[in-house]
Measured scan of single mutants.
Amino acid sequence: ETKSLTLVLHRDSGSLGFNIIGGRPSVDNHDGSSSEGIFVSKIVDSGPAAKEGGLQIHDRIIEVNGRDLSRATHDQAVEAFKTAKEPIVVQVLRR
């Protein structure tokens, strides 16, 4: 079962304390579909994302501050987090 969660993150020394993997390839599949998503791959101990109620590894990131990342490329997702103003509201899907 997958549930949708909304989390609020604040940077600590400029970092949110997690890494992402995935992202849509720069070239779409011929039918326009994509199974890619942006997923949390690593969480830094005691970083902002590790706090209670924070992110978990394998969370799929859907949205950052209202910006849809469900079909974003990896670079677009990285840029969305880099430029996001605080508080950073992150919507994820968690299995």
Rank of each mutant, 00 (worst) to 15 (best):
A72V: 08
G37N: 02
R60C: 04
G47L: 06
I88T: 03
D45M: 07
I57W: 03
G47H: 14
S70P: 01
S35G: 14
R24M: 11
E36S: 12
S70D: 04
G66H: 05
R67Y: 14
K3S: 12
S35Q: 09
S4R: 13
D68E: 04
G22W: 09
S15Q: 07
A72K: 02
G47T: 09
K51C: 11
F18M: 04
I43N: 02
I20Q: 01
V40D: 15
D59S: 00
G17E: 04
S35E: 14
R11N: 04
R95E: 11
F39C: 04
S46L: 07
I62W: 04
L69W: 00
V92F: 02
L7C: 14
L5M: 11
R95V: 06
V8R: 15
G37K: 00
H58G: 14
N65G: 04
N65E: 02
S41I: 03
I62G: 01
L69Y: 02
E86P: 05
G37S: 02
P25D: 14
P87N: 02
D28E: 10
G23W: 05
G53N: 09
I43F: 04
K85L: 07
H30V: 10
S34R: 11
S33R: 12
G14A: 07
S26V: 10
I57P: 07
R60S: 02
K85T: 13
V92T: 02
I38R: 00
I88C: 05
S35H: 10
R67I: 14
P25A: 11
R24Q: 12
E86V: 05
S34C: 14
V89T: 13
V78A: 15
G17L: 02
A49Q: 10
G23N: 10
V92A: 03
V27M: 14
I88P: 02
G22I: 07
V27E: 09
D68Q: 04
I57A: 07
L93N: 08
L5K: 06
E86S: 08
G14K: 05
V8S: 15
G37H: 04
R95H: 12
I20L: 08
S13M: 15
A49C: 10
R60Q: 15
T73P: 03
S15L: 07
K3N: 14
V27D: 13
V92L: 05
G47K: 06
S35Y: 14
V90L: 08
F18G: 02
F39S: 04
T6V: 07
R71T: 15
T6F: 10
P87A: 01
R67C: 11
S46N: 13
S4N: 11
V27I: 14
H30K: 12
G37L: 01
I57T: 08
V8N: 06
R11S: 05
G17W: 03
I43Q: 01
L69N: 00
S35A: 09
K3W: 05
K3I: 15
R94L: 00
G47Q: 06
V27R: 13
T2L: 10
G22Q: 15
R95F: 06
D68I: 03
G54W: 05
K3E: 05
R67V: 14
F39G: 00
P25I: 07
A72R: 01
R11F: 03
